[in-house]
Simulated assay, not measured.
Amino acid sequence: MRPTERLSAATTNALDMFLRGGVADLRPMPRVLIDKGPNRSVYRFTGAGDGEPVLLVPPLAVPAFCFDLRRGCSLAEHLVERGRRLYLVDYGNVRFSDRGLGLEHWINEVLPRTVRAVSRDAGGAPVHLVAWCLGGILSLLTHADQADLPIASIATVAAPIDMTAIPLVAPIKPLADLTRGWILTPVYRVLGGAPRAIVKRVFQLSAIDKVVTKPYAIVSHLDDRDFLAQIEAVDRFTDNMVAYPGRTFGQMYHRFFRSNDLSNGEVDFGGRRISLRAVKAPVLVVAGTSDSIAPQRAVRRLVDVLDNAAEVRFETAPGGHLGVLAGRRARATTWRHLDEFLDRHAPVPT
């Protein structure tokens, strides 16, 4: 691009950013509600194909539009354009009255009911899950716990199970061990959970280098509309974080982060033990090469414990925690891995 063209593009982008409401196309992909219940709204994207259904499973505490970040960089848009029959579960907002909900609520109720609703809507076809972060862990635990669910395959992106490999956890673990976990317990019990403001700050802390350098990045890429649109979309994403229910946060803190139970592939919920070795469906595991929330070693541990799955494929892709799922480079890396995995296990009818 010639200097005059760059200047013209930068001027247009600056005017759109500061005076005309932004540069990103944040319109959600069209969808219809097919099922609703406590902590779940299940949607089918319109314009989808007739093949076996694909269900997008977000983690807790983040907006479900992580899969539909912006037009041109939306995994939902991509899968619909490839002819997939696509669905999404949205957990909605977490209220103080939800503070007693534990992880088993999602494993026992939310995800099983969602999977059955999707299968029913698709004429009884088995469901292929594509899940991000904790959504991947919950999907695997649900499948391991309820083998009768019509789950055909599971693709996880940035789903860590070895918490000793996470830099954000390492500094507080010795103190948590010394106090037997009581360093945070009174806080989340009083507040009813982890408030959305704290969740947002932790997410930003995981990419503090990008937060600090963002003003310079914007100025130096003022002529790059796609780059600016991505920053705008990510800002909207972080502004819409959701709180964790108190009991869920407590279980994650004590079972996952402090005790690191999941690293051995098993977790206990009130005397009921679930083992990831019971997973039988094919699994794709994708890790981000610069993910500080779910580093490669924390994610790759899944391969070691899914030894009874029909297939386990491990891939890496560039990007941080959100970037590996919905970054600009994910379009040619993570999404390609997902396409290849789904094409093998759920071919689109021609």
Rank of each mutant, 00 (worst) to 15 (best):
V187L: 15
V57S: 08
Y188M: 09
V324I: 13
R301F: 00
K280D: 06
P195K: 06
S220H: 15
Y87D: 12
L284E: 05
I161M: 02
F67Y: 15
T350D: 12
V80M: 07
T289D: 12
P3K: 06
A14N: 00
P53L: 08
S8Y: 02
D291L: 12
V299K: 05
E5Y: 06
I34F: 04
T11W: 10
P160N: 09
G271N: 08
A48V: 05
W132I: 05
L262V: 04
G124F: 11
P174N: 08
I34L: 05
A76N: 11
D343I: 09
V234F: 09
I172T: 04
A158F: 00
V118I: 15
G49L: 11
P112G: 07
G288Q: 10
C66S: 06
R99T: 12
H254F: 15
P38R: 13
I218Y: 04
A152S: 09
T213Y: 07
L88Y: 05
V80T: 07
R273M: 14
V219F: 02
M1D: 10
V348L: 12
E340T: 09
A147M: 14
H78R: 14
T316Q: 01
L141A: 07
A346Q: 06
P63G: 06
W182D: 09
R344G: 15
V80D: 01
A117I: 14
E340V: 07
L75Q: 02
A243T: 07
I198Q: 13
A131M: 11
D177E: 13
A197G: 00
A330N: 02
P195G: 07
V169F: 14
L60P: 03
P295S: 08
R27Q: 12
D209I: 03
P167T: 12
A61E: 03
P28D: 13
T333V: 07
L69H: 06
A281N: 05
R258Q: 09
G49K: 11
A294G: 03
V54M: 10
R255Q: 13
L338K: 03
S119E: 09
L15V: 13
R313G: 09
L276E: 04
P282A: 14
L325P: 02
A176D: 14
A170Q: 00
E340H: 12
H221V: 12
P347K: 08
S139H: 13
A298L: 01
R6C: 00
H321R: 06
F256L: 05
D226V: 13
L134A: 01
F314E: 10
D16F: 10
R31Y: 08
G100E: 15
A131P: 09
A194T: 08
K280I: 01
V115M: 14
V130E: 02
R297P: 02
H321N: 08
Y188I: 11
H221L: 14
A158T: 03
F257S: 07
R336S: 14
R120A: 14
R273Q: 14
Y253S: 15
A170F: 00
R272P: 03
I137M: 00
G51E: 04
G320W: 04
S8G: 02
G136I: 03
E315C: 08
V305M: 13
Y253T: 15
I137R: 00
S119C: 05
P282H: 11
A76K: 07
R236Q: 10
Y188A: 10
